[in-house]
Amino acid sequence: MKYLYYPGCSLEGTAVEYNISTRALFDALGIELVEIKDWTCCGASAAEAQSELLSIALPARNLAIAESMEESIEDILVPCSACYLNLRRAAEETRKDPELLAKVNKVLEPEGLELKGLKRVRHLLDVLSSDIGAIGLAEHINKTMDRYSVAPYYGCQCLRPYVVFDDPEAPTSMEPLILATGARIQDWHMATKCCGASLMNIKPEIAQEMVASILSGASGADAIVTVCPMCQMNLEGYQNQISRSAHKDLHCAILYLPQFLGLAMGIESRDLSLEMNLSNPSAFL
């Protein structure tokens, strides 16, 4: 099995461990990831706040490059939820609106690129839960995680607005994967509540309140597991400040889903870059 792979900017910088652990996980599963060559930024949450055409054209550029690559691979795997939404929106909107497609192709043309709409954009969690699944994963599990209780955190943009692989309000796609490792699912109510996203940079007090409510909701869990670099950064990057303002200890290990599953598959923690996490993962070392 092969997927085209769009890591996105965060996975080369602040979320480098998400890239390393995703690659390690798929390597162990015997699945090849073919990186889209010379990919560029998807626009994140910035382009949509500045220019509508730019917010479609930036991700479309990457889709067009993907189309010029291996014909036999239809799916583009995207680990970042914001990149996923942007690429997916570009694919869906240009499919619905030929005028927009023509305009986007005008932007792409001088680079020798053309978007035709040949590829499918898939979130990492979609691929893990739909294509591999708990059964596919189970044969690779060789270390029980039964002493851990894990809170699956889905965030927003892998679930909404495009309803593709899970219930957008009460998602469960992570549960069979986590249960396959022997771990317990923490019963909680914050799995789909926004972490504040880029508000953390513009209005930190407000976003930190949002994160505080998520961390409080996970109390008792050994880890919160995420599938998005923005969620991960917001949940783990400010735990000292948030604990201080909340007058209680809200520290919690935050792991990327591939890091957690990788541990259960017996992949060495350094090969999952656990030492790069900003929260304390020592309970898992």
Partner: peptide
């Protein structure tokens, strides 16, 4: 904030 982000993307392609 968004303008600074996009300026970096314009200059480098990746953030």
């Amino acid at each position: 904030f968004y303008g600074s982000f996009l300026e970096s993307v314009r200059r480098h392609g990746r953030i």
